[in-house]
């Protein structure tokens, strides 16, 4: 079980957010889940990338009307972060997983939450993240003429910024 890093004051300051975090934790019992931060109507969670599918299966069971707002990807240098933003009980939960920068790969959640299809394909295009379990990840964002293997949102060394 991952350790939480939220202070007691924060828990008291944001009771409904803390409640959502608690519900998620108890639903995902046994996963390496750690609640990082609470703020007004926001919960920030982090977990290892391997358990994303199981996480969404359980959370979806708990809140069938869960609304996946979007998926963010970003290149923080040493690793690639993927953040799933979803809304439950009017609290926006941000689930972060960290991927290896050289071979970023995470399981798809397309079959659990069909809305994620477009978001996953977008990330595949701009950051080159592989979503395991998809039959294909066709090009989505970039023009057909964009060179293969070049990802506009990856950090590039200075002076190498111009793409074809």
């Amino acid at each position: 079980m991952g350790a939480d890093v939220v202070s007691v004051e924060d828990r008291e300051k944001f009771p409904s957010e803390a409640e959502v975090a608690r519900k998620i934790k108890s639903a995902c019992d046994g996963m390496m889940l750690s609640v990082q931060r609470l703020s007004r109507r926001r919960v920030w969670i982090e977990m290892p990338s391997g358990e994303v599918r199981a996480f969404f299966e359980r959370v979806k069971k708990l809140w069938p009307a869960l609304h996946l707002s979007t998926i963010t990807g970003l290149d923080s240098g040493s690793e690639i972060e993927v953040i799933y933003h979803f809304d439950v009980d009017n609290v926006l939960v941000n689930l972060r997983v960290k991927l290896d920068a050289n071979t970023p790969k995470v399981d798809t959640i397309c079959d659990i939450l069909p809305v994620s299809d477009a978001y996953e394909r977008e990330l595949h295009d701009v950051l080159g993240i592989e979503f395991a379990g998809r039959t294909s990840t066709p090009r989505l964002v970039l023009p057909d003429s964009w060179p293969e293997g070049s990802y506009p949102l990856r950090n590039v060394p200075k002076g190498d910024e111009k793409h074809a």
């Binding site: 477009a118 394909r121 977008e122 701009v126 294909s136 066709p138 090009r139 989505l140 964002v141």
Partner: peptide
């Protein structure tokens, strides 16, 4: 600004 949808 980011996306194009394509049917598989």
């Amino acid at each position: 600004r980011m996306v194009r949808l394509d049917d598989v």
